[in-house]
């Protein structure tokens, strides 16, 4: 079974995936994210590391539904990358890097085994579905940013407007 083989290499695959994801940051930032183990001193590194394991486990699990944990972990990473210096594709590209890690952990000679390749495709589809979910999360984050901009402009003077509306008899409920 391919899953068994991959699970045997779980630690190496997760490390590889984490490394590739962290490589999307400038080298100095990446080196810090790898080294600092305190999650409060290095929350980005912690989100990536913890998220990678939970997401990998879900891909391997075969479970049809998302567990709340996997969605939360995915959200943790995407929410961060949605406000960093990435284009949308770069922000979400880290999901597809998991495919690269899975493939590279399979000895090349085994890739001639049709059954195994079929299994790999099935796993990769699971990664694809995660990518779509990530896209939803990403869009929600971006929409929230714009909503926040509007909210801030409104809140800044909310009391003045409320007062003015009351004074001149205009409706003042938002």
């Amino acid at each position: 079974m391919l899953v068994d083989l991959l699970l045997e290499n779980k630690k190496a695959i997760i490390k590889h995936w984490t490394d590739l994801t962290i490589d999307t940051y400038p080298p100095e930032g990446g080196s810090f994210m790898r080294k600092q183990k305190d999650p409060f001193a290095n929350p980005v590194g912690a989100a990536i590391t913890n998220g990678a394991e939970a997401i990998f486990d879900w891909v391997m699990s075969g479970s049809k539904d998302y567990s709340p944990d996997v969605v939360r972990r995915l959200d943790d990473i995407v929410r961060i990358r949605a406000v960093q210096q990435f284009s949308a594709s770069d922000a979400l590209g880290f999901i597809f890097l998991l495919k690269k890690c899975l493939r590279e952990s399979i000895p090349e000679k085994m890739m001639n085994d049709q059954h195994l390749v079929g299994e790999l495709l099935r796993l990769e589809s699971r990664v694809d579905s995660l990518a779509l979910t990530s896209f939803d999360i990403y869009m929600k984050c971006r929409e929230k940013l714009f909503e926040m901009r509007a909210m801030e402009i409104r809140n800044r003077t909310s009391r003045i407007l409320e007062r003015a509306c009351m004074k001149y008899g205009a409706p003042h409920d938002w």
């Binding site: 284009s87 493939r103 079929g118």
Partner: peptide, 23 residues
């Protein structure tokens, strides 16, 4: 399933996330 047309793993593995400049 016809697997012959699938790109080789190597072709697919070359994902580049526009790595930051190393200057």
């Amino acid at each position: 399933m016809d697997l012959h047309d699938l790109p080789k793993p190597k072709d697919l593995m070359d994902i580049d996330l526009n790595k930051p400049p190393e200057t």
